[in-house]
Design a binder for these strands. Structure first.
Lengths: 329, 329
DNA sequence: ATGAAAGCGCTAACAA
DNA sequence: TTGTTAGCGCTTTCAT
């Protein structure tokens, strides 16, 4: 591999001049510029980006933390983010926490060791107190997930409202025994959804049984299990608020297998409006989250931060969500 | 940020000794080691990985090229890859070509500028001749996709056989007018699938009409379009080999909407065995590709290469595929 | 067992 | 407009 010095020698100029050509500096004579370019081609010269990084103290790399990329919501989000990153000459490192606190901290350490310029948190496993310190090392922003204590830019939806309108829709359709599902952690997002759910119930004066809360539910297979558990229940709910299209799809599919009528015997409310919502039978009535916009806006906020625009302290972007009717309710 | 020099001063030793402690060298007195550790903690010292990279001439980063991450086949593949990469202290940079030749070359340039230690090609847009030169800069391997001219390690399936058994299954079920879909490019994988498809047809003495080839088809929405076109046809096929579960799901969903009976009026053969295959109605009969294994094996081959094990010239891993019956045929 | 010094490849003051 | 020089932070000979 040839270096900037080889090019300088061959072109008969100094390293500085070569560097200037490389960085499109003004004040380089055209003839020297040509000489340098010729030398570069001759030597098949390519700048070593690691050396550039060391010198410039920047990596042109940002990390996005998600639970797992095979969740369609996140893969779509990452698709959008990566496209914008690429357009801006940035690399995107995908970090899957796999719902694990330790893995999350290992990824955050990348920031300490100067391996990345910024972090987009699209999920959060640890308590914010564990994470807060990392904000000293590089810009960290929230995307979709959030925490009230965090003084960092956040791009998200009103999850309280999302859960509220979903639940209210079920209630307005006459369902009065509504179960709900959630994963394992209780993040800002999950907490707000719970609040929205209960608020709709309270408003309508409907009861809620703890028996109707399913936890640790996030995959299609979990949805199948939930349906099987529901139909075995003594006091059986007639609707379920899933908080996830994957879970909802599992419920619907299993219902088809076991000949449980959707929505007559059980109404199913999804969340996300993933592609699958339009492919199951019946189609999934769900809360549409504008995942493209969330991903796009988040990456833009991050890029602004990297360019010194925008402030690191609180700055909230709230995106709209809405209900999509398809037939499962 | 404190550097190795700060630590050395505070501990009263040389930079060299600190570096030795950092790298678990033998021949460091226990008491000095303790001194160094204490100084590190006191200063909240973290090594700067860019400096390490420059010195060691390695990045601990590998890139994976895919069309787009939101294709469930690839998101699952990347999930597996990233987990193994993380376990081995490697970062995974996701590179979406978006089916674009230029973007693919931009990503391959990462290798030239020493930004990554290796490339996993899970798709290929350019002709291999365009790509071959890059093998001089870093290890490049094929995963799933492949090209006969490439002398690089390849982890893949027998796509000829996959297409053959899928098509033969349709024929054995009595379907005799079989359409097929493909995307836009004609890679090694796609070419082999075509050969397998035609081989089964020839063997059975079945005719094929060019009218029954749909190209530029890769998304759910494309599948919907294909179904609409098929039912308008004069000489209408009674089965379709899609080459993609997403396309197949689109066909099935649109058939449901338009009240076309699957498989009676149209049999649908998928490819991949994505999650969605078990969620549509009827379930998708499809060719199972062991995506977990492909991803896992590819990353292992790459890691071996990085460790100097394994040879860069031809080395083929062929993984098994099989048909899964579900009801769409 | 430890340290001095060279240098990985590049950029940016500063000087000329 | 160009070049000299001093590092960015780390690892690794080579001495001792």
């Amino acid at each position: 591999m040839s270096t900037i010095e080889d090019v300088a020698k061959l072109a008969g100029v100094s390293k500085t001049t070569v560097s200037r050509v490389l960085n499109n500096h003004p004040y380089v004579a055209e003839n020297k510029k040509a000489l340098v370019h010729k030398a570069m081609e001759e030597l098949l010269y390519v700048p070593n980006s690691t050396a550039q990084r060391l010198r410039k103290q920047t990596t042109q790399t940002i990390a996005v933390l998600i639970p797992r990329i095979s969740n369609p919501f996140f893969s779509k989000m990452v698709e959008v983010m990566e496209n914008i990153a690429a357009d801006n000459g940035l690399q995107l490192v995908v970090c899957q926490t796999m719902y694990d606190k330790k893995r999350e901290l290992v990824y955050l350490d990348l920031v300490k060791t100067k391996q990345i310029d910024g972090v987009i948190l699209a999920s959060l496993e640890n308590d914010w107190n564990e994470v807060n310190d990392y904000t000293n090392f590089a810009p960290i922003i929230f995307c979709n997930e959030y925490d009230d204590r965090a003084q960092v830019p956040t791009v998200r939806l009103n999850q309280f409202e999302g859960a509220y309108i979903g639940t209210k829709y079920l209630i307005d359709k006459g369902y009065n025994k509504i179960a709900k599902c959630r994963g394992n952690n209780l993040s800002g997002l999950v907490t707000d959804r719970q609040r929205g759910f209960y608020h709709a119930l309270d408003e309508a004066g409907l009861p809620f049984s703890e028996e109707w809360t399913f936890t640790g539910v996030s995959l299609v297979e979990d949805g199948r299990r939930v349906l099987r558990e529901i139909i075995e229940m003594e006091n059986r709910p007639n609707a379920v608020f899933t908080g996830s299209d994957e879970v909802a799809a599992g419920i619907i599919s299993e219902a088809g297998r076991l000949d449980v009528k959707i929505p007559d015997e059980l109404a199913v409310m999804g969340f996300d409006d993933q592609q699958i919502a339009g492919l199951v039978t019946p189609g999934l009535t769900t809360i549409h989250q504008p995942v493209d916009q969330i991903g796009k806006r988040s990456m833009e906020v991050m890029i602004d931060l990297l360019h010194g625009k925008g402030r690191m302290d609180e700055q909230l972007t709230l995106l709209p969500l809405h209900l999509v009717e398809r037939g499962s309710v």
